[in-house]
């Protein structure tokens, strides 16, 4: 039985889709079978970021409405044979996502994949709540600035109340992925500090992704950053985040932070 991961944030433009694709590709490179599902019906982007936009025939809505079989809608990545994509519909709207339909699709995907990564749309409406509904694990993507942090806090509240796990009285496993972290701006004090964000959100840190042109470049050529340039700083950060997601105890380092001898030894433990 695979794990269902929702990548969510509340706020738009913080890097949900980029992170979904990058983590999906990182997990797939470790040998796991991964499917990334785009829940942003009407505003799909995941197909572009994963370079599959010219191969989409059927999508999530087609499957839910019974117009296509799940196997027909799954698009296999050309570079990684363990990585799959289930695209969102661009022409329909979110009302076509029914709770029963989503439940059926997720249950079917869980049987064949090790990881089902649900790329949530921004906001707290139907699309976002359905994307998180069946999740086992949540990755909350946050930028180090106040509005993003507050929206993430709101989403964590919803994860603890509106998901199936929460309704069954279980605890939803939540991780913070801090993206677009700019060491230079952090140095000047223009950004929230990592400790401040962690204190406000009080969930464990999965990783810190540095702000980088590599991410933008990778998106533009339709390749997850962990596939495009595995040695770049953001790719390394995503690879490490994926290892932590698989349960490895790996210290998190803050990009650009000058640390002394002891700091280097002890690093920063993922809470």
């Amino acid at each position: 039985m695979g794990k269902v991961v929702v990548v969510t944030s509340g706020k738009g433009g913080v890097g949900k889709t980029t992170s979904s694709a990058a983590l999906g590709a990182a997990l797939a490179q470790s040998g796991d079978k991964v499917v990334v599902v785009d829940f942003d019906v009407g505003l799909r982007n995941l197909d572009l970021v994963m370079g599959a936009e010219r191969r989409v025939v059927y999508d999530l809505v087609n499957v839910i409405q019974g117009e296509a079989k799940l196997a027909q809608a799954l698009i296999r990545d050309k570079r990684l044979e363990t990585l799959y994509l289930l695209a969102a519909s661009q022409t329909r709207d979110k009302d076509n996502l029914t709770p029963e339909g989503v439940e059926k699709v997720i249950a079917a995907l869980k049987k064949t994949f090790d990881w089902v990564i649900c790329d949530s749309p921004a906001g707290i409406e139907r699309g976002a709540t359905l994307a998180m509904r069946h999740a086992d694990v949540a990755i909350v993507v946050t930028n180090p600035e106040v509005s993003s942090v507050r929206d993430s806090d709101r989403i964590i509240g919803l994860l603890d109340s509106k998901t199936l796990k929460a309704e069954n009285g279980e605890r939803m496993e939540k991780h913070l992925l801090l993206t677009r972290y700019d060491p230079a701006r952090a140095e000047r004090g223009d950004m929230l500090k990592v400790d401040d964000v962690l204190e406000i959100l009080s969930i464990p840190l999965l990783g810190i992704i540095p702000e980088s042109m590599d991410v933008l470049r990778a998106s533009n050529v339709g390749s997850p950053v962990t596939l495009a340039d595995g040695r770049s700083a953001p790719a390394v950060a995503y690879f490490n985040a994926a290892r932590r997601l698989k349960g490895e105890d790996l210290p998190v380092t803050i990009p650009g932070e000058k640390r002394g001898f002891f700091g280097k030894i002890f690093g920063r433990k993922a809470a």
Binding site: D153, R154, G157, L158, D160, S202
Partner: peptide
């Protein structure tokens, strides 16, 4: 014993409320 998250409203007109954790902006 949990933080009160943004958008959440804790309503207890009967008496005292003790929170072991923080109350977020917007809560």
């Amino acid at each position: 014993t949990q933080p009160v998250r943004s958008g959440q409203s804790l309503f207890f007109p009967e008496g005292d409320v003790t929170i072991v954790g923080s109350v977020a902006s917007g809560a």
